[in-house]
Amino acid sequence: MADSPLDSDLIIIGGGPAGCAAARMAAGVGMRTILVEPDRLCRNLYRIPALNNVLGGHTNGTDLADAIVAELKGTALCHLELGRRVTEIRADDGNVTVTIDTGARLVAPYAVVATGVGPVQPHDVTWITAPGLLTLPPLWEVKADDIQGRTLLVLGGDRPIGTFLRAHPTTDARLFVVYPAADAYKIDEIRDDPRVVLSLVKHLTLKAAGGALVSADAVGQDGTCRTITADTACLSIGNAPTAPPGDLTRGPDGYCPPAGQHPRVIVAGDLRSARFQRIMTALGSGSEAALHAYYATRDVPTKG
């Protein structure tokens, strides 16, 4: 397919909070944008049942996502390419070319990359041994009604556990959380919840126990081994960056820090670093990325 004409000022890759904020900010300063998202806008935000760290009075992800999507869809300067996946991003001295899965190439002077992160699976970490390429759902995809009165084996101690428990204060599910030493600082907020059993492990070998049950052999920090049995299992072991192929500079951890990228490629949101994966920081970085492109097109210095 032919390249798009140069009728857009900015291409935004990713329709989460950072990408949507970039598009809204760009429209506010008169920039025409194309936003590419393979799914629905703010897809992951809709799956967050409870919020306690955002402005605006939103207490769950659905309400915040609805507000963000309504804002963006009322932005006439943003053209949405939903259901499309970016297969390559290339940058040169004059423009950025973004190829999508239809074969079409979108061209603009600048691009914001805000593709975020996806859940890490057992085969991605060294402290878990699992059969083959076993995949498990992250905790935030589990429905509380499906685990009422059951025992849930949670792999990892990442913070979505606290979010899940706050969102479902009446669930009587039992969460057996096995976590490595690297997650020890994350579990303080759930330590005193009576529905949680915490187990610090050096290694976990996950195996099926027959039927719907799962079992795992856990090796503790002192070398002792115990077998854990649960009704089902899910993940809370963190996320991995989901950067598109092409001209992006990746660090050793796979993330794409803003420093060192091509001058026409601006990274925003969770893709920047594992340290600032919060909704409010994503919204702020998306807005900042759009302003960076705006000032760059006008040769306005952003420092000093």
Rank of each mutant, 00 (worst) to 15 (best):
C20A: 08
E37V: 11
A104Y: 00
L198A: 06
P301Y: 02
A293V: 04
K73F: 02
L235M: 15
G118Q: 08
D66N: 15
Y294D: 10
V36P: 00
E288A: 10
A67P: 03
T129A: 15
A173N: 11
L106H: 10
V177S: 05
N53E: 12
T249Y: 09
F176L: 15
P138C: 08
A243E: 11
R40M: 09
G74D: 09
P257L: 05
A212G: 12
T135E: 04
A91D: 08
I12E: 07
I279T: 08
I190V: 14
S287K: 01
T163D: 04
V196A: 03
L152S: 02
V107F: 10
Y295E: 05
R105H: 10
G57P: 02
L213F: 08
T129Q: 15
P169K: 15
C225F: 06
K73S: 09
V112Q: 06
E288T: 07
G56V: 11
R275D: 04
M1F: 15
V201R: 05
P131H: 10
W140Q: 00
L139P: 09
R191G: 07
A184S: 11
F164M: 05
C234V: 11
T170A: 13
T224V: 15
W127K: 04
Y255A: 13
T163E: 03
N95D: 14
I161V: 15
T163G: 01
L72P: 01
G223K: 12
I190P: 00
A108M: 08
V154E: 00
G220V: 01
F176P: 00
R298F: 07
A91V: 12
D7F: 06
A208S: 13
T297L: 14
V177E: 02
M1S: 14
G132Y: 07
A130W: 00
I128C: 05
N239I: 08
R159T: 06
G28Q: 05
G246T: 09
R195Q: 04
C225W: 01
I147P: 02
T171W: 01
I128W: 01
T102S: 14
D145V: 04
A182W: 01
S215T: 14
T302A: 10
L10S: 10
M25F: 06
L45G: 07
V117Q: 10
A290M: 02
G14M: 06
D9I: 13
A218Q: 09
T227K: 11
